[in-house]
Protein backbone atom coordinates (compact mmCIF):
# COMPACT_ATOMS: atom_id res chain seq x y z
CA UNK A 1 0.00 0.00 0.00
CA UNK A 2 1.44 3.35 -0.99
CA UNK A 3 1.49 6.34 1.32
CA UNK A 4 -1.23 7.96 -0.77
CA UNK A 5 -3.54 5.00 -0.35
CA UNK A 6 -2.79 4.83 3.34
CA UNK A 7 -3.62 8.48 3.80
CA UNK A 8 -6.86 7.90 1.94
CA UNK A 9 -8.00 5.04 4.10
CA UNK A 10 -7.05 5.76 7.67
CA UNK A 11 -8.90 3.39 9.99
CA UNK A 12 -11.96 5.06 11.47
CA UNK A 13 -10.97 4.38 15.05
CA UNK A 14 -7.87 6.55 14.67
CA UNK A 15 -10.03 9.50 13.60
CA UNK A 16 -12.47 8.83 16.42
CA UNK A 17 -9.68 8.60 18.98
CA UNK A 18 -8.22 11.91 17.80
CA UNK A 19 -11.64 13.55 18.11
CA UNK A 20 -12.40 12.24 21.57
CA UNK A 21 -8.97 13.30 22.81
CA UNK A 22 -9.34 16.75 21.25
CA UNK A 23 -12.79 17.19 22.71
CA UNK A 24 -11.64 16.13 26.17
CA UNK A 25 -8.15 17.45 26.81
CA UNK A 26 -8.63 21.10 25.90
CA UNK A 27 -11.49 21.42 28.36
CA UNK A 28 -9.04 21.46 31.22
CA UNK A 29 -7.36 24.61 29.95
CA UNK A 30 -8.55 28.15 29.67
CA UNK A 31 -7.44 29.54 26.33
CA UNK A 32 -8.32 33.12 25.42
CA UNK A 33 -9.11 33.67 21.74
CA UNK A 34 -9.19 36.90 19.74
CA UNK A 35 -12.80 37.70 19.00
CA UNK A 36 -14.92 40.23 17.19
CA UNK A 37 -18.52 39.90 18.37
CA UNK A 38 -21.11 39.93 15.62
CA UNK A 39 -23.86 42.51 15.33
CA UNK A 40 -26.79 40.28 16.34
CA UNK A 41 -25.06 39.39 19.60
CA UNK A 42 -24.15 43.03 20.27
CA UNK A 43 -27.80 43.95 19.79
CA UNK A 44 -28.85 41.13 22.06
CA UNK A 45 -26.62 42.35 24.86
CA UNK A 46 -27.40 46.02 24.37
CA UNK A 47 -31.12 45.33 24.33
CA UNK A 48 -31.00 43.18 27.45
CA UNK A 49 -28.98 45.90 29.21
CA UNK A 50 -31.51 48.56 28.21
CA UNK A 51 -34.44 46.94 30.03
CA UNK A 52 -35.18 48.94 33.19
CA UNK A 53 -34.54 47.07 36.46
CA UNK A 54 -37.69 45.91 38.20
CA UNK A 55 -39.67 45.38 35.02
CA UNK A 56 -40.96 42.03 33.84
CA UNK A 57 -39.97 39.94 30.85
CA UNK A 58 -41.13 36.56 29.53
CA UNK A 59 -38.69 33.72 28.98
CA UNK A 60 -39.69 30.91 26.66
CA UNK A 61 -37.33 28.11 27.62
CA UNK A 62 -37.78 25.55 24.88
CA UNK A 63 -34.83 23.25 25.30
CA UNK A 64 -33.91 20.09 27.18
CA UNK A 65 -30.75 18.22 28.01
CA UNK A 66 -30.22 16.84 24.52
CA UNK A 67 -29.08 20.26 23.25
CA UNK A 68 -27.51 21.31 26.52
CA UNK A 69 -24.23 22.11 24.76
CA UNK A 70 -25.66 25.18 23.07
CA UNK A 71 -28.88 26.03 24.85
CA UNK A 72 -27.47 25.54 28.36
CA UNK A 73 -24.89 28.32 28.21
CA UNK A 74 -27.39 30.53 26.37
CA UNK A 75 -29.87 30.11 29.19
CA UNK A 76 -27.18 30.68 31.82
CA UNK A 77 -26.02 33.91 30.22
CA UNK A 78 -29.55 35.25 29.93
CA UNK A 79 -30.29 34.36 33.54
CA UNK A 80 -27.10 36.05 34.72
CA UNK A 81 -28.02 39.24 32.90
CA UNK A 82 -31.61 39.26 34.17
CA UNK A 83 -30.67 38.38 37.75
CA UNK A 84 -27.85 40.90 38.06
CA UNK A 85 -30.04 43.62 36.64
CA UNK A 86 -32.95 42.69 38.92
CA UNK A 87 -35.32 42.11 36.04
CA UNK A 88 -38.27 39.91 36.96
CA UNK A 89 -39.10 37.05 34.65
CA UNK A 90 -41.76 34.41 34.01
CA UNK A 91 -40.59 31.16 32.42
CA UNK A 92 -42.93 29.17 30.20
CA UNK A 93 -42.43 26.55 27.52
CA UNK A 94 -44.43 25.23 24.61
CA UNK A 95 -41.87 22.76 23.32
CA UNK A 96 -41.32 19.91 25.72
CA UNK A 97 -42.80 18.62 28.96
CA UNK A 98 -39.29 18.23 30.37
CA UNK A 99 -38.26 21.80 29.68
CA UNK A 100 -39.62 23.43 32.90
CA UNK A 101 -37.71 20.97 35.07
CA UNK A 102 -34.52 21.57 33.12
CA UNK A 103 -34.96 25.32 33.54
CA UNK A 104 -35.67 24.97 37.25
CA UNK A 105 -32.54 22.88 37.79
CA UNK A 106 -30.48 25.42 35.91
CA UNK A 107 -31.85 28.34 37.92
CA UNK A 108 -31.18 26.47 41.16
CA UNK A 109 -27.60 25.84 40.10
CA UNK A 110 -27.08 29.48 39.19
CA UNK A 111 -28.57 30.56 42.50
CA UNK A 112 -26.16 28.33 44.40
CA UNK A 113 -23.33 29.98 42.48
CA UNK A 114 -24.71 33.45 43.27
CA UNK A 115 -24.77 32.68 46.96
CA UNK A 116 -21.20 31.43 46.74
CA UNK A 117 -20.17 34.64 44.96
CA UNK A 118 -21.84 36.76 47.61
CA UNK A 119 -24.83 37.87 45.54
CA UNK A 120 -28.41 37.67 46.76
CA UNK A 121 -30.27 34.55 45.68
CA UNK A 122 -33.09 35.09 43.21
CA UNK A 123 -36.29 34.19 45.00
CA UNK A 124 -38.96 32.03 43.37
CA UNK A 125 -42.36 33.74 43.08
CA UNK A 126 -40.92 37.10 44.23
CA UNK A 127 -38.33 37.55 41.49
CA UNK A 128 -39.38 34.93 38.99
CA UNK A 129 -42.23 32.50 38.40
CA UNK A 130 -42.40 29.20 36.62
CA UNK A 131 -45.52 29.25 34.48
CA UNK A 132 -44.98 25.73 33.18
CA UNK A 133 -45.59 23.73 30.06
CA UNK A 134 -48.30 24.16 27.41
CA UNK A 135 -48.70 21.30 24.95
CA UNK A 136 -49.89 23.23 21.90
CA UNK A 137 -47.24 25.72 20.80
CA UNK A 138 -49.41 27.29 18.09
CA UNK A 139 -52.51 27.57 20.25
CA UNK A 140 -50.74 28.85 23.34
CA UNK A 141 -48.64 31.51 21.68
CA UNK A 142 -51.68 32.71 19.78
CA UNK A 143 -53.71 32.79 22.99
CA UNK A 144 -50.92 34.80 24.61
CA UNK A 145 -51.06 37.37 21.84
CA UNK A 146 -54.79 37.78 22.36
CA UNK A 147 -55.05 37.68 26.11
CA UNK A 148 -52.06 36.91 28.30
CA UNK A 149 -54.13 36.64 31.47
CA UNK A 150 -56.42 33.97 30.11
CA UNK A 151 -53.57 32.20 28.33
CA UNK A 152 -51.77 31.78 31.66
CA UNK A 153 -54.97 31.29 33.67
CA UNK A 154 -55.03 28.70 36.40
CA UNK A 155 -51.25 28.25 36.55
CA UNK A 156 -49.68 28.11 39.98
CA UNK A 157 -46.24 28.22 41.49
CA UNK A 158 -44.72 27.82 44.94
CA UNK A 159 -43.47 30.83 46.87
CA UNK A 160 -40.30 30.07 48.79
CA UNK A 161 -40.97 27.57 51.56
CA UNK A 162 -44.71 27.45 50.93
CA UNK A 163 -46.57 24.17 51.15
CA UNK A 164 -49.46 25.19 48.92
CA UNK A 165 -49.10 26.64 45.43
CA UNK A 166 -50.36 30.15 44.73
CA UNK A 167 -51.80 31.56 41.54
CA UNK A 168 -48.97 33.06 39.48
CA UNK A 169 -50.97 36.23 38.87
CA UNK A 170 -50.58 37.09 42.54
CA UNK A 171 -46.82 37.05 42.19
CA UNK A 172 -45.01 40.41 42.11
CA UNK A 173 -43.64 39.31 38.75
CA UNK A 174 -46.98 39.31 36.98
CA UNK A 175 -49.22 41.32 39.31
CA UNK A 176 -49.13 44.49 37.23
CA UNK A 177 -49.15 42.80 33.84
CA UNK A 178 -52.48 43.18 32.09
CA UNK A 179 -51.54 42.41 28.55
CA UNK A 180 -48.59 41.08 26.61
CA UNK A 181 -47.68 44.64 25.68
CA UNK A 182 -46.92 45.33 29.37
CA UNK A 183 -44.11 42.83 29.14
CA UNK A 184 -40.82 44.45 28.20
CA UNK A 185 -39.54 41.60 26.04
CA UNK A 186 -39.85 37.94 25.22
CA UNK A 187 -36.56 36.07 25.43
CA UNK A 188 -36.55 32.74 23.67
CA UNK A 189 -34.06 29.96 24.17
CA UNK A 190 -35.07 27.39 21.62
CA UNK A 191 -33.84 24.10 20.26
CA UNK A 192 -37.17 23.40 18.64
CA UNK A 193 -39.43 24.91 15.99
CA UNK A 194 -40.98 27.38 18.43
CA UNK A 195 -38.81 30.16 16.97
CA UNK A 196 -41.01 30.11 13.86
CA UNK A 197 -44.25 29.77 15.77
CA UNK A 198 -43.51 32.66 18.11
CA UNK A 199 -42.39 35.01 15.39
CA UNK A 200 -45.57 34.34 13.43
CA UNK A 201 -47.84 34.98 16.38
CA UNK A 202 -46.11 37.42 18.68
CA UNK A 203 -43.73 39.53 16.58
CA UNK A 204 -46.06 42.50 16.42
CA UNK A 205 -47.00 42.38 20.11
CA UNK A 206 -43.78 42.29 22.07
CA UNK A 207 -40.05 42.78 21.34
CA UNK A 208 -38.55 39.37 20.59
CA UNK A 209 -34.99 38.40 21.48
CA UNK A 210 -33.79 34.97 20.40
CA UNK A 211 -31.12 32.50 21.33
CA UNK A 212 -31.19 29.51 18.99
CA UNK A 213 -29.03 26.56 17.99
CA UNK A 214 -26.39 26.86 15.29
CA UNK A 215 -28.67 25.09 12.85
CA UNK A 216 -31.58 27.48 13.09
CA UNK A 217 -29.36 30.55 13.31
CA UNK A 218 -29.25 31.28 9.55
CA UNK A 219 -33.00 31.31 9.10
CA UNK A 220 -33.48 33.47 12.17
CA UNK A 221 -30.82 35.81 10.89
CA UNK A 222 -33.32 36.81 8.19
CA UNK A 223 -35.80 37.85 10.85
CA UNK A 224 -33.09 39.70 12.66
CA UNK A 225 -32.01 41.63 9.59
CA UNK A 226 -35.61 42.54 8.79
CA UNK A 227 -35.92 43.97 12.29
CA UNK A 228 -38.37 41.42 13.68
CA UNK A 229 -35.84 40.32 16.28
CA UNK A 230 -34.20 42.83 18.61
CA UNK A 231 -31.22 40.58 19.05
CA UNK A 232 -30.03 37.12 18.14
CA UNK A 233 -27.57 34.68 19.61
CA UNK A 234 -26.94 31.63 17.44
CA UNK A 235 -24.99 28.55 18.37
CA UNK A 236 -21.77 28.48 20.32
CA UNK A 237 -20.23 31.42 18.47
CA UNK A 238 -23.18 33.55 19.53
CA UNK A 239 -22.90 32.55 23.14
CA UNK A 240 -19.16 33.11 23.12
CA UNK A 241 -19.83 36.61 21.77
CA UNK A 242 -22.41 37.23 24.46
CA UNK A 243 -20.18 36.10 27.30
CA UNK A 244 -17.40 38.21 25.79
CA UNK A 245 -19.67 41.26 25.72
CA UNK A 246 -20.76 40.65 29.29
CA UNK A 247 -17.12 41.01 30.35
CA UNK A 248 -16.11 43.83 28.03
CA UNK A 249 -19.26 45.84 27.40
CA UNK A 250 -19.90 47.73 24.18
CA UNK A 251 -18.10 51.02 23.45
CA UNK A 252 -16.89 50.75 27.02
CA UNK A 253 -13.35 51.76 27.92
CA UNK A 254 -11.64 48.99 29.90
CA UNK A 255 -9.21 49.39 32.79
CA UNK A 256 -6.47 50.33 30.32
CA UNK A 257 -8.70 52.93 28.70
CA UNK A 258 -9.06 50.91 25.48
CA UNK A 259 -12.43 50.05 24.00
CA UNK A 260 -12.55 46.28 23.50
CA UNK A 261 -15.73 46.17 21.44
CA UNK A 262 -16.70 49.19 19.39
CA UNK A 263 -19.94 49.29 17.50
CA UNK A 264 -21.85 51.94 15.63
CA UNK A 265 -25.07 49.96 16.05
CA UNK A 266 -25.32 50.86 19.69
CA UNK A 267 -25.41 54.48 20.75
CA UNK A 268 -23.29 55.27 23.77
CA UNK A 269 -21.57 53.16 26.33
CA UNK A 270 -23.04 49.81 27.40
CA UNK A 271 -21.16 48.75 30.51
CA UNK A 272 -20.09 45.17 31.24
CA UNK A 273 -21.82 43.14 33.93
CA UNK A 274 -19.98 42.95 37.24
CA UNK A 275 -19.24 39.50 38.61
CA UNK A 276 -18.86 36.06 37.10
CA UNK A 277 -19.72 36.13 33.41
CA UNK A 278 -17.75 33.45 31.70
CA UNK A 279 -19.66 30.24 31.39
CA UNK A 280 -19.65 27.18 29.23
CA UNK A 281 -19.53 29.22 26.02
CA UNK A 282 -16.08 30.50 26.91
CA UNK A 283 -15.09 27.04 28.09
CA UNK A 284 -16.24 25.21 24.96
CA UNK A 285 -15.22 27.60 22.22
CA UNK A 286 -11.47 26.81 22.12
CA UNK A 287 -12.28 23.10 22.09
CA UNK A 288 -14.70 23.64 19.22
CA UNK A 289 -11.91 25.35 17.30
CA UNK A 290 -9.63 22.40 17.80
CA UNK A 291 -12.32 19.91 16.77
CA UNK A 292 -13.13 21.87 13.62
CA UNK A 293 -9.44 22.16 12.84
CA UNK A 294 -9.16 18.40 13.23
CA UNK A 295 -11.95 17.92 10.72
CA UNK A 296 -10.35 20.28 8.23
CA UNK A 297 -7.07 18.45 8.72
CA UNK A 298 -8.78 15.10 8.07
CA UNK A 299 -10.30 16.45 4.86
CA UNK A 300 -6.92 17.76 3.73
CA UNK A 301 -5.20 14.45 4.51
CA UNK A 302 -7.83 12.57 2.53
CA UNK A 303 -7.41 14.82 -0.47
CA UNK A 304 -3.62 14.81 -0.35
CA UNK A 305 -3.76 11.03 -0.17
CA UNK A 306 -6.05 10.94 -3.18
CA UNK A 307 -3.74 13.12 -5.25
CA UNK A 308 -0.66 11.15 -4.24
CA UNK A 309 -2.33 7.86 -5.11
CA UNK A 310 -3.46 9.28 -8.46
CA UNK A 311 0.01 10.50 -9.23
CA UNK A 312 1.52 7.14 -8.32
CA UNK A 313 -1.02 5.43 -10.54
CA UNK A 314 -0.27 7.78 -13.39
CA UNK A 315 3.46 7.14 -12.99
CA UNK A 316 3.09 3.36 -12.96
CA UNK A 317 1.05 3.40 -16.15
Amino acid sequence: MSIGEKLQSLPKWILFLCLIVTASVLQFFNIPLPNKPQDPAIDYYAFAMSIPPGSTVLVSSDWTNSTHGESGPQFDALMRILMRRNIKFAVYTTADGQAPQVAKDEIRRLNEQRVKDGERPYRPFEDYVMVGYFPSAEGENLAMSINLRSAFAGKKDFPEGAKEPVDIWQSPVLKDIKDISDVKALFLISASNTDQIIIERLAAKVPLVYAVTGISAPQNFNYYSSGQLKGLVGGLKGIYDLEYLMTSGVNHPGADGKIAVASTRVPGDVPPLPGRNQGLGTAYFPTLHAALALMILAIIIGNVGMFMARKAQGASK
Partner: peptide, 19 residues
Protein backbone atom coordinates in the same frame (compact mmCIF):
# COMPACT_ATOMS: atom_id res chain seq x y z
CA UNK B 1 -23.53 25.10 9.99
CA UNK B 2 -24.59 21.73 11.33
CA UNK B 3 -21.07 20.49 11.99
CA UNK B 4 -20.45 23.10 14.66
CA UNK B 5 -23.63 22.20 16.48
CA UNK B 6 -22.86 18.49 16.51
CA UNK B 7 -19.33 19.10 17.72
CA UNK B 8 -20.65 21.33 20.46
CA UNK B 9 -22.85 18.49 21.68
CA UNK B 10 -19.87 16.16 21.80
CA UNK B 11 -17.83 18.74 23.68
CA UNK B 12 -20.70 19.17 26.13
CA UNK B 13 -20.82 15.42 26.69
CA UNK B 14 -17.10 15.29 27.31
CA UNK B 15 -17.47 18.18 29.73
CA UNK B 16 -20.09 16.15 31.54
CA UNK B 17 -17.79 13.13 31.71
CA UNK B 18 -14.50 14.76 32.58
CA UNK B 19 -15.36 17.98 34.39
Amino acid sequence: TTVTMRFTLLIDRMHFVWI
